[in-house]
Simulated scan of single mutants.
Amino acid sequence: MRDETINVLFVCSRNRWRSPTAETLFRSFPGIRARSCGTSKAARKQVQNADIDWADLVLVMEDEHSSRLKARFRQLLNSEVVYVLDIPDKFQFMDPDLVDILEQTVPPILLAALKQD
């Protein structure tokens, strides 16, 4: 492994509910540093080149987010793995159903990423 931690970027559209929930849940996951951003111009924190450079792993909520990132950051995303979580935009921040979905889908991806390199 390249070092003891990996940088994980969670992305949704406006960085208000889904990606901040994921960041909150996984920022204390062992071996993980987490951030969240949004793809929309109306995002609370819009994804920038520096975020893509920082990330070892990018987890997006929908296919649309992956497409937007690839269109805008194609050259920067060459080495990063982008996973689509297929989580629709119907949850509020820390919604118990959203938390359950994230807790079921994200840890296997993180554990696999920690075992690589």
Results as ranks from 00 to 15, higher is better:
38 G>K: 13
8 V>D: 13
45 K>N: 10
6 I>T: 11
53 D>P: 01
1 M>H: 15
40 S>Q: 06
39 T>I: 11
40 S>H: 11
30 P>F: 06
40 S>A: 14
51 D>H: 08
44 R>Q: 15
17 W>V: 00
1 M>V: 14
13 S>V: 09
48 Q>S: 14
17 W>A: 04
47 V>N: 03
23 E>L: 06
43 A>I: 10
37 C>D: 02
37 C>Q: 05
40 S>D: 15
14 R>P: 01
45 K>S: 08
38 G>F: 12
45 K>R: 08
28 S>E: 14
2 R>H: 08
15 N>K: 00
4 E>G: 12
12 C>V: 12
36 S>D: 10
45 K>T: 01
59 L>Q: 06
35 R>H: 13
24 T>I: 00
50 A>P: 00
34 A>C: 13
43 A>N: 07
8 V>Y: 15
60 V>R: 03
37 C>V: 11
33 R>Y: 07
10 F>E: 07
62 E>Q: 13
30 P>I: 05
45 K>H: 07
51 D>K: 11
43 A>C: 03
41 K>W: 03
46 Q>C: 08
38 G>I: 15
33 R>S: 08
49 N>M: 08
13 S>N: 12
52 I>S: 01
36 S>G: 11
60 V>P: 06
31 G>N: 14
59 L>G: 02
55 A>C: 06
30 P>Q: 09
2 R>K: 10
40 S>E: 15
28 S>C: 04
17 W>R: 01
58 V>W: 03
22 A>G: 08
29 F>E: 02
45 K>A: 06
37 C>T: 06
30 P>H: 04
18 R>G: 00
27 R>V: 08
25 L>Q: 04
45 K>Q: 02
3 D>C: 14
42 A>T: 14
34 A>E: 12
20 P>Q: 06
6 I>R: 13
7 N>T: 09
33 R>T: 05
27 R>K: 12
8 V>C: 15
22 A>Y: 04
15 N>A: 09
59 L>S: 02
36 S>M: 02
16 R>C: 07
21 T>N: 12
7 N>A: 11
20 P>C: 02
32 I>K: 05
48 Q>P: 01
56 D>I: 04
18 R>Y: 03
48 Q>C: 04
9 L>P: 01
41 K>F: 13
36 S>W: 13
39 T>S: 10
55 A>R: 12
55 A>Q: 10
1 M>P: 14
15 N>F: 05
52 I>P: 03
16 R>L: 14
24 T>G: 02
44 R>K: 14
24 T>C: 09
31 G>K: 11
7 N>Y: 10
35 R>K: 12
38 G>N: 15
